[in-house]
Amino acid sequence: MSNDEESRAGVLSRSLQPGPLRVSHDVFARVAIDPDTADLVPAFLARRRSELVSLMHAFGRSDYDALRKSGHNLVGSGAGYGFPRLSELGAELSAAARDKDRAALAATLATLSEHIVAWHERYG
């Protein structure tokens, strides 16, 4: 693992630790939850937060197929639940996994975890 990868993986690990998280307000800027599906959102975010651990494990064992598949699923569901940024991050994750670009994967996973934790704490 390169120094850059290690530092990004460190960000990812720290974001998974319990406790207050300082995040940019941009994280919430484009959230638009539909009242028709609002009751589904807490469980959806809880599942995404749990999934972060398995994503990190997949990254650790270079399981690019699992990372690509998870990215694909996030593309499909993120915007529908009111989180268009999640669909974008899913697309980035999927592309980085397809290219086996570990640096891009580490960066995307760190951003992803920052967003998901923040959203879960506010809307979960």
Partner: peptide, 9 residues
């Protein structure tokens, strides 16, 4: 999650 969303819609 996609199934649940499409089902609701």
């Amino acid at each position: 999650d996609t199934r649940a969303l499409l089902h609701r819609w």
